[in-house]
Design a protein around this nucleic acid. Sequence first.
DNA 1: AATCATTACTAACGCGCGTTAATAGTTGCG
DNA 2: CGCAACTATTAACGCGCGTTAGTAATGATT
Lengths: 348, 348
Amino acid sequence: MSRRVTSQDVADLAGVSRTTVSFVLNDVHRFSIRPETAEKVRLAAQQLGYYPNASATALASNQTKNIGLILTRSPEYIASDTFLPQILSGTLDVVKQHSLSLLVEWVEPGQQLETYLELTRAHHIDGMILMTPRTDDTGIKALEDADIPVVVMGYIPQSTLHSVDVDNLGAAQEAVEHLISLGHRQIACITNAALPYTSAVQRLDGYRQALETAKIPYDPALVREGDFETQSGYKQMKSLLDSGKKFSAAFVASDALAFGAYNAIREAGLSVPEDISIVGFDDIPLSSFISPTLTTVRLPARKIAQDSCYLLMRLMKRDFPESRMISLPTTLIIRDSTRELEESRRLS
Amino acid sequence: MSRRVTSQDVADLAGVSRTTVSFVLNDVHRFSIRPETAEKVRLAAQQLGYYPNASATALASNQTKNIGLILTRSPEYIASDTFLPQILSGTLDVVKQHSLSLLVEWVEPGQQLETYLELTRAHHIDGMILMTPRTDDTGIKALEDADIPVVVMGYIPQSTLHSVDVDNLGAAQEAVEHLISLGHRQIACITNAALPYTSAVQRLDGYRQALETAKIPYDPALVREGDFETQSGYKQMKSLLDSGKKFSAAFVASDALAFGAYNAIREAGLSVPEDISIVGFDDIPLSSFISPTLTTVRLPARKIAQDSCYLLMRLMKRDFPESRMISLPTTLIIRDSTRELEESRRLS
DNA sequence: AATCATTACTAACGCGCGTTAATAGTTGCG
DNA sequence: CGCAACTATTAACGCGCGTTAGTAATGATT
């Protein structure tokens, strides 16, 4: 249980003052230091196994070197978030490159304001990334006013916060247009999440937009609301099938849910894509392995995370980009779950 | 850009000293304080929106209130870690209950020692959880000597560190015995990861054990090494099929890889379970949705994470449990990917 | 009345570091 | 030789908080 090594110890061993140690180890060039002295200090530091105390550094410099990744779902949903690994991977990647640390926090719905305040005022972090926020987030206002850099992964209407996102609406539209181009006219839709999540609304809007462009009337009876989990994809597809409404294709706005939908369709004695074509959204790793392989919209999840980090770091340097949002491109990946509707099944 | 609110401000407003404020807000009962005074302080704190500065608190109290979750894979693998959400979910859950924060760190292979030292000496965290460590981890020794609480999720041979794990060997054995009980004698195996990962070795040993017990000779030609990703499950199953070796079942020590294996089998014009029975390992959420639903070993991932946290918190309170390891039970979940081998295909 | 214990509070130090203002030492130049 | 202009280094303060040792006031006990 040896005492902690402080910069004073390093200074003593090197025969200089603590200030000099600090200058050397932090590469402060404003006050010049003789190379030999610097070398002596570095040697002493290494010899003692000196690591500057993080809290002390943070307190003195007013920088924690931590950035926060804020998750807005409850732990049960987090457990089945098929996206999280990619997000985390991208974030860790960049964060590590800049020798920062990542603090992962989870916000309870209704507790947003409190949590954001605590996080910023207590200064646990230098900046934060907000993952998939909800429109009914009660803390957004506080974040806009707080002087802490924030990047939103996703979209919040009428917010002044910086954000990184994909064009959910456009991508969904493209997905549905693909179905339409295959001759489908009766197209169901299952959203990826409840509607307070902005991406859910945007994708639904894309669906409607595509229908409208093709002059297909929008029928609410063909739409269901999912909630992240595969199970809900199953449940909602079952509900659609049981409703008696006819449809030859479905846009399921999340791959995970699409897998559930597959199951419901199979259970009903039907098959994909022979009876029903399915387009997903996200392109999670398993989508190209499931049978039939899933036609879906590829979301560059890891890149979203990386770009969010890069953006955050710019903001932390008070280097504000001209544009408030970065929009990343998506790609429609056509696989085996969609197929042209036979003439016989087409409407007149 | 208003000045930060400090405890001095609270003290001034309440008309007491800073010390009193500290006592009140930290519930220090050793020095008694009149209820009215306490109330005054609490009111002032709330009125000012006072949040104690995390760095200062950490520095003064020598406790960061952060715990570290250390990932041992590279970002590319982290991205496809189907387990991570459950682990994170369980960890966040417990951590939040105890009003701590979670620092997620990723360790480069070869950099373990350096990273652990930095993490502990710089005192970023009060304790750490090591996820899926490798046997060739160069930093373990340092952690055993460091006086920081550590919990290992998984198993490290000959380590004195506390750990939470499942009986991988027993579970794998049970899985393979299930195949044997269905009449299979030629059983292939694909490991979940490279062999420096202890769980991979243990599961492989379970496989061998089961064969031995049933007096089935172990044939290395039926064994392949996976590496976490679905793609490698595909690749290795393809390699097995291409090898010409006959087998009627396979134990794939990771569900994610099993999905890849499904694909390879399908591509070869065969089917599960008619031609080949498959048992997976992990029971990730999608396993009950894929077709055919996957027989697998359920790993209580979230509970592992939670128990690891609880254990860590005990250690942080210097409350050392009698036993060094906690072993959690697994369950063999029998679904549709395994089937009894027809008499005609059985060996004499 | 004098002593003691108890209650309610505070002054002041230390945690380990970054940083500014000041100081000693050296060289250049007329 | 004397002054200026650097160069190399340090003393000392502050970051915001926890905590110990100590004080003042009150009541209880001899």
